[in-house]
């Protein structure tokens, strides 16, 4: 790692004002530290969000579940509120990476990073979540822009994510056997505003599959989506899987996600 300065503020405003032009926020460090170690990235200073209590925790109120940006994957996976409100979200968190990664990695870090193969983006988009920052609120669909790109400005930090509680939801991923990242992951949610289907791992960034949404809208059953194809042009092709294979996996994972939703 190149050398850098380090600061550990105890409040959101302090953290935002501590961040200079070539600085980065540090959350769980499970993506940022490996990138710095490989010298794929360089910073003047890391502003560690680890001591900011108000960024941690889960709350359920009426029709909404709210998760603080610095809440770890293991906390989401084990939360009684998450299990009762959106069990699919708890199960998603329980299958991110491995136990050590889940003990450190956070929801805020995961969505701010917007890795094309990350799990959380599918849940946020399918559930119609809202990302709250120190400056504004952004709908999940507007938040995830492109490969590793979000709507966040340089000194803007995610404070929490709020999820409308759906009627039911399910997530299925085909994990890369080495990293557990999603080769393809599909999150299906039956919400007050209709059925929403979001796909991660397959394209440069998370996207909605509208043909599947329409089919599930009239018949919420695995059979309704297993035959629906997704155009492979524009999907990712790499050493792990071809675009055609990913397209095939979208149909299979969508059907499994519907079954999981019950």
């Amino acid at each position: 790692m190149y050398s850098f300065d380090y600061e550990r503020p105890s409040g959101v405003n302090e953290a935002a004002s501590a961040l200079g032009e070539d600085d980065k926020f540090l959350a769980g460090g499970q993506t940022l530290l490996p990138t710095l170690k490989l010298r794929l990235s360089q910073v003047d200073k890391l502003v560690d969000l680890g001591a900011i209590g108000e960024l941690k925790g889960i709350a359920k109120s009426g029709s909404e579940l709210t998760i603080g940006a610095m809440t770890t994957h293991v906390t989401v996976a084990n939360s009684g509120d998450v299990k009762s409100a959106i069990p699919a979200l708890g199960s998603l968190a329980a299958h991110i990476g491995d136990a050590q990664v889940r003990n450190r990695g956070t929801i805020g870090g995961s969505i701010a990073n917007n890795d094309p193969a990350a799990d959380y983006p599918a849940a946020l988009v399918a559930l119609g979540a809202t990302v709250h920052t120190n400056k504004r609120s952004i709908s999940a669909e507007d938040f995830f822009v492109d490969l590793f790109e979000t709507a966040l400005e340089d000194d803007e930090l995610v404070t929490k994510v709020s999820f409308p509680i759906p009627e039911k939801a399910g997530y299925a991923k085909f994990p890369n056997p080495a990293s557990r990242f999603a080769l393809v992951g599909v999150f299906v949610a039956k919400t007050a505003s209709g059925v929403r289907v979001a796909v991660t791992g397959a394209g440069p960034s998370v996207f909605r599959q509208s043909d599947m949404e329409a089919a599930l809208g009239s018949n919420f059953a695995a059979d309704a989506v297993s035959g629906i194809k997704t155009d492979a042009s524009g999907l990712n092709s790499d050493i792990h899987a071809s675009a055609d294979y990913r397209s095939h996996l979208i149909s299979v994972m969508a059907a499994r996600a519907v079954t999981a939703a019950g």
């Binding site: 530290l33 490996p34 560690d48 293991v74 050590q100 990664v101 990293s179």
Partner: peptide, 26 residues
Amino acid sequence: DTSQCGACTVHVNGDSVKSCTMLALQ
């Protein structure tokens, strides 16, 4: 040293973590 193997696992406040993927200052 790339966060994959877990040989560096220690407990921090009781939880297992990869100590190659955490700063001493954290």
